[in-house]
């Protein structure tokens, strides 16, 4: 088959899902790889975050001013927040991963509030697609075990046998269920929120969706917070020394 036809078929296939409303809108192709609207949005978010922190930390001063103030406030706020769960030492260790989770998910959720997002090509909240949330949850899954093994060595695997060996299948299933649960919660909430706003907009575009938009400002922050805090407590549980508690 002609590759161009095959590519068009695949594009149509992606667009057919979720009847009518384009869920997977392919913007363009890089070689054989289709690039979706949500991919472009998440790239934009990555670039915005990267630029923000690059500009904020490019010229560090002892007495901060301008953008450095904002960056310091963000980083210190996150550090305080994680220190409440992990303790100061471990919070510093895992801040890069967990802080990035929070900021990325927060911006992803809020990118759905940009007027026209989901309708205009190239604007779409990445977290309203469960491929993105699934990828984030898989990162949490591997990070949990990697940090656990790094902190405790082989004795990390002992916790699969607690309280006794018969719990092994339950503990293993729990490890698989956690990322699925993280995925579904974040995706479900953001997708539901987007869909409600979409329908409100199509029914009564003037003023009616405003309360929902306000609510989704709060929900976006809460969902980002919940994903991060759960990732934190998973990593915390896998790396905690037994004497600590």
């Amino acid at each position: 088959m002609d590759p161009r036809i095959r590519r068009e078929n695949r594009t149509r296939q992606f667009q057919m899902q979720k009847g009518g409303r384009k869920l997977h809108d392919v913007l363009f192709h890089i070689g054989p790889v289709p690039v979706f609207s949500l991919t472009v949005t998440s790239w934009a978010i990555i670039i915005i975050l990267g630029l923000f922190f690059f500009l904020g930390t490019r010229n560090l001063q002892r007495v901060p001013s301008g953008l450095q103030n904002v960056v310091e406030a963000v980083v210190e706020g996150l550090l305080d927040f994680f220190a409440g769960v992990l303790g100061e030492k471990r919070a510093r260790m895992y801040l890069p991963l967990l802080g990035t989770f929070f900021l990325f998910i927060l911006l992803c959720n809020y990118s759905g509030l940009i007027p026209g997002s989901g309708e205009i090509d190239g604007f779409k909240a990445p977290t309203s697609d469960w491929n993105v949330t699934g990828a984030l949850a898989i990162v949490v899954f591997f990070a949990t075990h990697y940090y656990g093994i790094k902190a405790k060595g082989l004795s990390y695997f002992k916790h699969f046998l607690t309280p006794f060996a018969a719990f092994l299948p339950l503990n293993l299933l729990e490890e698989v269920a956690r990322p699925l649960s993280l995925t579904l919660r974040l995706f479900g909430n953001v997708f539901a929120e987007e869909t409600i706003i979409f329908f409100l907009l199509s029914m009564a575009p003037f003023l009616v969706p405003v309360p929902m938009l306000a609510l989704s400002l709060m929900l976006g922050a809460i969902q980002a917070l919940v994903f991060t805090i759960l990732a934190t407590s998973y990593i915390g549980a896998s790396t905690e020394e037994h004497e600590e508690h």
């Binding site: 303790g87 269920a177 699925l180 649960s181 993280l182 919660r185 919940v226 759960l230 407590s233």
Partner: peptide
């Protein structure tokens, strides 16, 4: 320690109860 002004750990656990149950049965 115990700086958790939002009660965020409890919030996280509360919101994860339902999906945890569903996810483990589904898995």
């Amino acid at each position: 320690m115990a700086k958790d002004p939002w009660g965020s750990k409890a919030l996280g656990q509360a919101l994860s109860l339902a999906t945890n149950m569903a996810a483990s049965v589904a898995v």
